[in-house]
């Protein structure tokens, strides 16, 4: 079973963001980066499926600037076999449709049975790339996947619905699945893995060479919301206090 895992490098969840000077993106220098959380789970799922099946390849595909090498190496160290790195700087890495088409171009000659991606990226959170790519490659697609079970020519997936409901769905292969965090326990790269990863192949492509979308989505402006805390001391007798409280709940916080 050959599996492709889409991996994105995103700013660490505790990082402090600043908007860049022209307001088109965030300042990227000095930010700590990490592997997108749900991608990490997708990778683990891929590695486990491959271990179960005992054969096949896990191939990492990542799109972004040079710094992405870090997460690619990390994925290879965890056990992926090889990687494709599509070099792209902002703003090329902000549009799910163009990203999906670049990815589709990059993997069109591969024969993947499965494409696993994280449910959404922790930075932009469009949650579309995996599905669009699946469509472009003519695969069946599913999102919010919290469990997989590979069968003959098919895959049974467990999807998370609203309000604690789950759905089991059997789909044809090849398939593209968007994986929800928490379905497995991701591993840590072992020292041996880190050493062998150095020798694994990373194929390099350029976004501009393989993307045939002319009009890219762009950001009109980016701003950081400032949440302000307001504290009001309510004074007076009990009736006045209760009245004011009810007023606040009803008209300011709007609790119905």
């Amino acid at each position: 079973m050959n599996i492709c895992v889409l991996i994105k490098q995103v700013p660490g969840s505790e990082a402090q963001f600043n908007v860049s000077g022209d307001g088109s993106w965030i300042q990227e220098t000095e930010l700590p980066y990490e592997m997108n959380e749900s991608d990490n789970y997708a990778l683990e799922e891929a590695l486990q499926i491959r271990e179960q099946k005992g054969a096949g390849e896990v191939v990492i595909v990542s799109l972004g600037p040079d710094r992405c090498q870090k997460v690619i190496r990390e994925a290879l160290a965890k056990g992926a076999d090889r990687a494709i790195h599509i070099n792209a700087d902002a703003p090329y890495n902000t549009d799910p449709y163009s990203i999906a088409s670049a990815l589709a171009n990059a993997v069109k000659d591969e024969r993947f049975d499965l494409v696993l991606s994280g449910l959404q990226s922790d930075d932009l959170g469009f949650g579309q790339t995996g599905v669009i790519l699946g469509e472009m490659l003519g695969m069946t697609t599913a999102t919010l996947v919290v469990g997989t079970e590979v069968q003959e020519g098919k895959i049974k997936v467990k999807r998370e619905l609203e309000a604690g409901w789950f759905q089991w769905q059997t789909m044809d292969l090849p398939a593209s699945l968007a994986i929800q965090s928490g379905l497995n326990t991701p591993r840590y790269p072992s020292l041996k893995g880190i050493m062998t990863a150095k020798k694994k192949e990373i194929k390099k492509l350029n976004f501009v060479d393989i993307c045939n979308v002319d009009e890219l989505q762009s950001f009109a402006g980016l701003s950081v919301q400032h949440a302000e805390k307001q504290t009001e001391m309510i004074e007076g007798n009990i009736d006045q206090i209760v009245n004011r409280l009810v007023d606040v709940f009803k008209n300011e916080i709007r609790i119905n």
């Binding site: 326990t185 591993r187 840590y188 072992s190 893995g193």
Partner: peptide, 10 residues
């Protein structure tokens, strides 16, 4: 666990 097994609490 860390260096050989790669099994590390999240």
């Amino acid at each position: 666990e860390v260096l050989v097994e790669g099994k590390v609490p999240q």
